[in-house]
Design a protein around this nucleic acid. Structure first.
Length: 196
DNA sequence: AGCGTGATCTTT
DNA sequence: AAGATCACGCTG
């Protein structure tokens, strides 16, 4: 299918979190290694109006990519061991991003298995830290956009309404009650994280 | 249910 | 300078 263009990302964060479900994230590594994953779980982080968002208290060295152009990747390191992948939404200088929490592996399975140290299909990308590792994402990816040769998203048919699920976000302490997590119902690659 | 791990942010 | 927190994952 077609690659998604800039206009796709120029939308409010909460909408983007829903629109991303089902789309295919692609990374082309040197050596022509092609990695693909179908997005099955997302969370919206709505910039300065959202107490759980990194951008809540304004721009800092870490969160500055949340203020950049839609379609930029915001990749950060946390818990001493994990990278998290976000896709930036909202116009430039207005913060917002969608955390990618789960993907279904589509291509590059062998590479992903090596990265993750497991061959169990549903354990390769079923969590934000897991999928970042499967795709070998790190801080060198922070700030890159999805319109180049290395990273892009492929379109996919819209998700049928009956497959669309919503819940509170996972693993946060502030603004826990907001139903800003979106996922594909009954998909085994949705993370098993628990609501705190 | 408990803990490793280290950058970042807040408080002294 | 010290302490708390953290958009997690693994073990047990």
């Amino acid at each position: 299918m077609e690659r998604l263009e800039k206009q796709f990302y120029e939308t409010p964060t909460l909408e983007l979190a829903e629109k991303l479900l089902g789309k295919i994230f692609v990374r082309i590594l040197p050596g022509n290694i092609c990695l693909k994953g179908r997005i099955v779980e997302t969370e919206a982080y709505c910039g300065q109006h959202d107490e759980a968002s990194h951008a809540w208290r304004g721009k800092t060295a870490r969160n500055q990519m949340m203020f950049s152009a839609p379609g930029t990747m915001y990749v950060y390191f946390t818990y001493g061991s994990h990278y998290m992948l976000n896709i930036v939404s909202e116009p430039e200088n207005s913060a917002g991003a969608v955390l990618i929490r789960g993907m279904e592996p589509v291509e590059g399975l062998q590479f992903m298995q090596e990265q993750r140290g497991t061959a169990i299909f549903t354990n390769l990308m079923s969590g934000p830290g897991k999928l970042a590792r499967a795709l070998a994402l790190d801080s060198s990816c922070n700030g890159k956009n999805l319109f180049g040769e290395e990273f892009y998203l492929e379109d996919a048919p819209p998700l049928p309404k009956e497959l669309s699920g919503t819940s509170c976000r996972i693993g946060i302490s502030r603004s826990r009650e907001l139903p800003w997590r979106k996922f594909i119902l009954n998909n085994p690659h949705v993370s098993k994280g628990k609501v705190t």
